[in-house]
Design a protein around this nucleic acid. Structure first.
Length: 360
RNA sequence: GCUGCGGUAGUGUAGGGGUUAGCAUUGAGGACUGUGGAUCCUCCAGCCCGAGUUCAAAUCUCGGCCGCGGCC
């Protein structure tokens, strides 16, 4: 399902094939937890040239629920999306105290946020949920811990992650593609152990999980760099949760093929604008009288039409349209940026591309 | 004109002799990365004016100014 076309240093350019089409790598996918991005519609996602997004299968299983999804003949039809869809298991919710109830060897007890009912999510039922959803790429239920938790916790998390991956693989619909997630915190021995055990299980791709959640860049990047070497070259590598422009570029330089993150849209909602001249906060007072576009080099529909001053105003008076405009712009920016990384890799000068970017 | 109540950051308020004058919001900055749809952190900013009582006044007394209500 994955073909590598060219490399530049460790950066790779290729193609991922799913039931719903081809996706050029590296790529970034927005987070559409419950069936849409926040403030950006699926229609606009097509307009923005994204080939896929990621939803949260646990939340979808609670609402609209599996019965509805079955009756709708799958999630793709329900939301009328005929490109690829990744689904997360819901494992990431372990990090959120409002979701997590208890981690056990069998799986994880999560609180249904709609009803507060406690629900046991296991590798088996997660595989079934994602199969009913009709996910193109299902993510295996994993045990995520904060990077700064004790080694003992990470040992336990890796053990659970490996066991759950085995059970997921045994129970999943064979036609469904699935990616396993490497855990181990910042500990390279644990990362290696986890990666090797998961590689033996022969998943369609491998993700690096548990990163970019509070640890410093100085801690994160060495772990990515080393962990990449523990993964098979011929399979796609997915760094979960990374979405700031510079982080994306640096991770691609280390050999990562795909990403998802709420960062571009979440940032946009708080006024953080991605731009070719660096990120900045639109809520700053100096933007109130700036009649230039968000990014003078951006061709998105927002930058073509509206000024910083106007968008600053909308944000200040809490008009919801601002959230839409800014989210749209940031997604456009990220998609353009990643498109440019593919070009740079194909042309064999990716490191130079990153250096230029860092100079901004 | 008389009388009652009140006047504390830009706004809304707490404190009624000794407080680094508290809170909310606004304002200024920062954070946010497998999304609980405005959250978290830092900072700026104030006792209406004058006189008195007191070791000490935002606080008590008197006068002024302003606001709201009542009476003439």
């Amino acid at each position: 399902m994955f073909n590598l076309n060219s490399v530049s240093g460790k950066a790779r350019c290729g193609e991922m094939n799913t039931k719903h089409g081809k996706i050029k790598t590296p790529f970034f996918m927005p987070v559409a937890t419950k069936g849409t991005m926040k403030w950006v519609s699926l229609e606009e996602l097509i307009e923005l040239n994204f080939e896929c997004f990621i939803s949260n299968s646990f939340l979808l299983s609670r609402k609209p629920g599996l019965n509805l999804l079955k009756k709708a003949k799958g999630y793709h039809k329900f939301i009328n999306w005929n490109k690829s869809i990744f689904t997360d298991s819901g494992g990431f919710q372990l990090l959120d105290e409002t979701f997590l109830h208890k981690i056990t060897k069998k799986g994880v007890w999560l609180k249904d946020p709609f009803t507060m009912e406690k629900v046991l999510l296991t590798p088996q039922n997660s595989a079934e949920i994602q199969s009913i959803i009709g996910s193109d790429i299902a993510m295996v239920l994993d045990d995520v811990r904060h990077p700064h938790k004790s080694k003992q916790e990470h040992i336990e998390a890796v053990k659970n992650t490996i066991n759950w991956a085995k059970e997921f693989k045994e129970n999943q619909n064979e036609k469904m593609n699935s990616f396993a997630i490497v855990q181990g915190g910042l500990n390279l021995d644990l990362r290696k152990k986890c990666a090797e055990a998961l590689t033996e299980l022969n998943f369609d791709g491998y993700a690096l999980g548990g990163l970019c959640i509070g640890e410093s860049r100085e801690e994160m990047f060495p772990v990515i760099k080393k962990s990449i070497d523990f993964l098979p070259k011929e399979k796609p590598r997915y760094l979960m949760g990374v979405g700031s422009p510079l982080d994306l570029l640096k991770a691609i330089e280390l050999g990562v093929d795909c990403f998802d993150s709420a960062f571009p849209t979440k940032s946009a909602r708080h006024g953080l604008i991605f731009s070719s001249e660096g990120n900045y906060n639109l809520t700053k007072a100096k933007n109130a009288l700036d009649f230039n576009p968000l990014d003078k080099n951006c061709k998105c529909k927002v930058c073509r039409k509206h000024s910083r001053a106007y968008l600053h105003h909308l944000l200040k008076v809490k008009e919801e349209t601002a959230l839409h405009y800014l989210s749209y712009h940031n997604l456009y920016y990220v998609e353009e940026l990643i498109k440019n990384t593919r070009t740079a890799i194909n042309e064999g000068n990716y490191s130079k591309f990153v250096k230029e970017f860092e100079k901004r």
